[in-house]
Amino acid sequence: MLVVEDDEDLRFAVVAALRGNGLAVDEAADLPAADEALFVNSYDCVVFDRMLPAGDSVDYVRRMRADGQTVPVLFLTARDTVADRVEGLATGGDDYLVKPFAVPELVARVRNLCRRITPVRPPVVRCGTLEIDTATRTVRRDDVLLTLTVKEFAVLEILANRPGEAVRRAELIERCWDEMTEPNSNVLEVLVSQLRRKLGDPPLIHTVRGIGYRLDSQP
């Protein structure tokens, strides 16, 4: 997802909160930077501050919708009148959250918007002896509760939703890390190694040479 906010401190706090809840987040400080990011990448959701150095983001979103862009949008703003909220929603916004806000509410609203373009998945995903509860974000193998990091859970969830399928390395990095991650770094390999160790034997995650990784219900 993308966060567009010119207040550096607020942007840092919002991005940190979203990343801390397992979301891969890119950030932009103004509309030109947001325009470039949206041209290069596909996002599940965009959070816009309304008043940015280059103008009101409502006007930008209106143009986005006219161009056929359907990415869900949440306006995050201090403009709190009914007229402001109606304008934001009427011009293409999907949600509107007024500053100051509670971080858990922001995270919940963003997750709700991201689900709009994500295929509905069962709350509990099972792959052999592995059980992943996406609602509580817990993982068990052979009924033993495992302790995973946010990134480990994110990678495992993607693999488990496509059992037996080779998921490309580039896709895992794009969906679980942000744009600052170097695609040729070994962050994914290190994480998969740690994840295999936590999942135990026999191993469930297999390397598909030249492509990425595959999760099988059987070793």
Rank of each mutant, 00 (worst) to 15 (best):
F48A: 05
G55Q: 06
S57K: 01
R50P: 02
P32T: 06
G55V: 03
Y43F: 12
A54G: 05
A28D: 05
L31H: 13
C45I: 08
A29Y: 09
S57G: 08
A54F: 07
F39V: 11
A29K: 13
D44Y: 11
F39S: 15
S42C: 13
N41C: 12
A33K: 03
D49K: 03
L38H: 06
L31F: 13
L38P: 08
M51C: 12
V46G: 01
A33P: 03
M51S: 12
L38M: 15
V40F: 12
Y60Q: 05
D59M: 10
N41A: 11
A33D: 07
D30C: 14
S42H: 15
V58F: 09
A34S: 03
E36G: 11
A33S: 11
L52F: 03
D56Y: 00
A28E: 02
R50A: 04
P32S: 02
P32G: 03
F48S: 06
A28V: 12
V58E: 13
M51P: 04
A29H: 14
F48R: 01
P53N: 14
L52K: 05
F39W: 13
V58R: 15
D30W: 11
Y60D: 02
A29D: 07
Y60V: 00
D56T: 01
R50I: 07
D59Y: 12
D44H: 10
V47Q: 01
A34K: 02
P32V: 04
Y60G: 02
D30T: 13
A33H: 07
E36K: 12
D44T: 07
D30G: 11
D30V: 08
V47A: 03
V47F: 00
A34N: 03
A34E: 01
A37N: 08
V58Y: 05
E36N: 11
D35V: 09
R50W: 11
D49A: 07
P53V: 06
L52D: 05
D49S: 04
D56L: 01
P53L: 10
A37E: 00
D56E: 09
